[in-house]
Nucleic acid binder design. Structure first.
Lengths: 210, 210
DNA sequence: GCCTCCGTCTACCAACTGGTAGAGAAATGT
DNA sequence: ACATTTCTCTACCAGTTGGTAGACGGAGGC
């Protein structure tokens, strides 16, 4: 089954946008990559922005799929959270360009902020509702759900960040190692969220900053 | 004391590069911001790349200053690590564009990878040496120093990531909150690295991924 | 008063950007 | 066999990009 031209365009665009960014990617460069003319891209998409939007929509759909399929397992509490995080990790290993795209879209100056918001906001609300329900049920330690979500998000995205730093520093090409280390952090997160903790959180020597 | 033109250029460039990125920033846009013509920028810097390089060098010098001044306090163990992390956090609050620049430079497709490496590698080696010494002295729990450093790096950079996501989602503009939450994570890190831990790390329900 | 140097300017340039118009090839339907 | 539709192409275009050449004006030295 031959991949259609628009599909090939979106594939290449996701890869390139996710690594070098939107504005650093010209339609020409994209076309050369595919062995076609840029006018062919503009035949399938009315503008470059339309390509960007389509790539974002596709990626969002793929990520939402992960949440949907995990939400339907009937798991509860932290097991559910961990299952989703683990799936996202796996996706990050298999398709690092997806995380690159997320980083590109969440950039302050991005023109796609509105689009991102329309995809992410409902997901965020659902996750918040879930956490609130589970906190009410006593399965997750009570805290501010949106803060917790942001922390989880930042931790997950840390994989990509860390991996890139590793490559920039010329270290071994070891995303799996980065993932394993990140899981270590997730375990700390887990420890902090489990109800009836062993109260082993040490007195930190760090004072309040600001 | 009037700021010189090249200084003003570097200031504006850091701010813009750190938010919208290198390639999305034109010399013209930079010049308009400063109320000058782009040719004036090219009078002070031989090329755009030279501006980029100078901005990176400046930022690197500023960051290295933080490490240097903290290294000379004679602190040891985790107190030293925490002091540096705290300083970097403070810098992140005061100058978010610095972290934006780091993200821009560590991007896989970046042309500045070599320059980044030349700045970061020696710092990284020194930090590794420090950690190894402190592990030998029993003041930090033994683990792989470079892995530990990468985790710390990712955690610190998470502040920026989280803050940007927050803004993209249209939440309250609260970097300080993000920093506080991040410090919570740092405390977990602290717990995991303190020698003779209380062994309170829970059995995680997460299985090995891959 | 004049000269020189410094900093910014106007006026260009070639290359590249996203985008348009329309020709031509290759299937497809009838 | 022909007409139509689908797709990619060549040939453009105007605006923007980083970069060059050289004029202009002001400050200081003499």
């Amino acid at each position: 089954m031959a991949e259609t031209t628009p599909d090939r365009i979106l594939d290449a665009a996701l890869r390139t946008f996710g690594t070098v960014g939107f504005s650093a990617t010209s339609l020409d460069a994209l076309a050369v990559q595919l062995g076609i003319r840029k006018q062919t891209i503009l035949y399938w998409f009315p503008s470059k922005q339309a390509v960007v939007d389509a790539v974002i929509d596709n990626a969002a759909a793929e990520l939402i799929e992960v949440f949907e399929s995990e939400a339907s397992t009937g798991r509860t509490g932290l097991a559910q959270v961990e299952a989703i995080v683990r799936r996202v990790f796996r996706l990050a290993v298999a398709r690092p360009e997806l995380l690159g795209l997320v980083r590109e879209v969440t950039r302050p100056g991005s023109r796609s902020t509105e689009r991102l918001r329309s995809h992410a906001a409902p997901l965020f609300e659902r996750a918040k509702d879930y956490l609130e329900r589970e906190m009410d049920a006593g399965r997750i330690r009570r805290s501010e759900p949106s803060m917790l979500l942001l922390s989880i998000y930042a931790t997950v995205l840390g994989v990509a960040t860390e991996f890139e730093a590793q490559q920039a520093l010329g270290m071994d090409d070891d995303l799996r190692g980065a993932v394993a280390r990140r899981q270590e952090l997730i375990r700390f997160l887990h420890a902090a969220l489990t109800p009836d903790p062993t109260e082993a959180r040490p007195e930190s020597t760090s004072e309040q900053i600001g």
